[in-house]
Design a protein around this nucleic acid. Sequence first.
DNA 1: GACCTGCTGCGGTTTG
Length: 800
Amino acid sequence: MAEQWFKQSDWQPYDFQVNTWDAIGKGYSGLLNAPTGFGKTYAIWFGVLQQYYKKQKPGIHCLWITPLRALSKEIYMATERVSDGLGLSYTIGLRSGDTSLKERTQQKKKMPNGLITTPESVHLLLAAKGYNDTFKNLQFVIIDEWHELMGTKRGVQIELALSRLKAINPELKIWGISATIGNLEEAEEVLLGGYGGKRTMIRTNLKKRIEIETIIPEVIEKYPWGGHLGIKLMEEVLPIIHKSNSTLLFTNTRSQCEIWYQRLLEREPDLAGAMALHHSALSDETRLWVENALHEGILKAVVCTSSLDLGVDFRPVDTVIQIGSPKGVARFMQRAGRSGHQPGAISKIYFLPTHSLEIIEGSALRHAVTHSEIEQRVPYIRSFDVLIQYLVTLAVSDGFRANETYEEVIKTHCFNSVTREEFNWCLLFITDGGSMLEAYDEFHKVVIENGLYVVTSKRVAMRHRLGIGTIVSDAMIQVTYVGGGRIGSIEEWFISRLSPGDSFWFTGKNLELIRIKDMTAYVKRSAGNKGAFPSWQGGRMPLSSQLSSTIRMKLDEYGKKKTDIEISSLSQLFEEQKMRSHLPHNDELLIEKIKTRDGYHVFFYPFEGRNVHEGMASLFAYRISQIKPMTFSIAMNDYGFELLSDQEIPVEEALGNALFDSSNISADIYASVNISEMAKRKFRDIATIAGLVFNGYPGKAVKTRHVQANSQLFFGVFTDFDPNNLLLQQAYDEVMTFQMEQVRMMQALQRMETQHVIIKDLEKFSPFCFPILTERFREKFTNEKFEDRVKKMLEQLDRA
DNA sequence: GACCTGCTGCGGTTTG
């Protein structure tokens, strides 16, 4: 079958494709690791089709799960093309949030043989009565982009769905498709779970060639020590855009995206119409238009955020520019791969540093990419919120029996350590609302009828189906033209700072606010050229540990041997650092001290990413204050952190007193950081996923602050009266794992214990500490004042 | 010498 297809289409299959057909034919489950653009879809698809034709049965034969609706559509088209091209009667269907009601009803009557879908839609199918019947002939489940899903709660959803499907058909074959990550073996284990059966991993040595070029400022002495926009290098970007057919410019934040777009357009008005913007706050219509235009090759440049990381391939794109640190090797490679999307083509990516020291990352990235040193994805474990949601899902449809479901659930990687007591707690939680909420009918969602856990209330069932999924997002204000036409969405708090008549930049347009009504901001185009750039409160990505350690290694190379152009271009900065302070080697830990009229500053440079630095700064502040009572203010970036106090900080004494001790950090962290405040924030998502708070009906989202208030209420009640509540525990665990990055902090402390500590008393700020200083002022002061402060700081610097 | 910060993903229409 495959041979026939390849004869028709006139290309030769790769080894990995043949191996995959083979393995599927021999009844294996497995993980396929291959780069994009080499035909992974066909590698799996022919294997699946071949099996179908041996033993045709009605209904869904194969479930193909992808993380993106857009990707589902692409797979749908590719698989249908094959099936049509070979004249097969294998029917293929698509099911996701934007599948029409009509199509769904048709599917209900007669399911296609291959269903392309998303993790959420699979759970919705499990929430439908008679799903057992729907899946009774299911033979294959394919998880596409498993590396994307694994480290998320959506990955947990997949694990749970598989545990159920595997119980319906123990012969079910599971195949994952994954890009290269640091823990592929684990990825396979997590996906295939604790089931028997033959399994294999198929890898290929085919590699996408990536060429990295750092854009180095011509006069490096004039490049700022701090900052994050990188606009200063715009002049270097224009020729790159011009000489390429089509360029993607990746920025780290949505507002940075808007600013770059605007500045490019001001500088080069001819780009109007040939350049576009793409990020998640833009309306779907706008985004779709941009994606299509990219496809057709009518755009010269698109400024975007991660929103274009994944998904549909844009063959006309031949150049990618990464503005600012990509924060991780995998993300950088992913973005590089958006260009040269044909087998054998080279992906060209430029790295544009936003401040001097960041130039070093260009060199670190090249090293990591060449040596395939890619981050791991850490799978979630014991996500009770997802488990609770899943149990209610099963209760909404055909109901479940406790023993059976417990046995199924503990076969997953996520829940294999869950005890029967803990599982019983979850059962109690969905039937009685747990020990605390017993009195409230609202939380008696599930009832037990003859040993079967079921939802009998229609209202409960419907509200549950509405809430299926693990992605929790804030309610946003919609932005719409007065005359109609959706533009996108902006955070409530940003728009609330504006008054009618004020203008702001959005979608690359200058907009004037007319009025706000019902969570919608009505605007019109403004002739003006002034206005604020919106800021959204998104996630904060810390530098990955992979990239951090490569940066430390590259720093160490300076002056030792012939090294990359990035490192040598930094010689002036490094010499300045040496002169004012010290340039640390790999076995050294630099601590800088300086006294200004703001107080006593101490800087540490572990290069471990801002999350670890935040935790470590609080930890050190706490430990030092045990020696001598004092208060600190804290600032950090991805490279280091600062402690500032109005009294002299006894660093030397603290060092002699096990400042870096890693043996007892949990207790010290609990004492030093306001963990409960952080847990409260995490708990909001957990409460939503577990179905404790209702996010509202579609189009009528409950205001963010209401969700916040409700979840805080539960958090308070549980803390006071039910401290063993598993969801509460989970919130704390998530803080320690993801916010504090506890494991990484331990490793960093252990490393620091072995390093040679070098303490320098500075007379003037060093190139290392300057960017951290500016971070701190930002937290305390508004932008205008920020500039004043920097000016004052400079005056002081000059006098020093 | 020295500007602005903070990603993405899915789901889907009742009742007070």
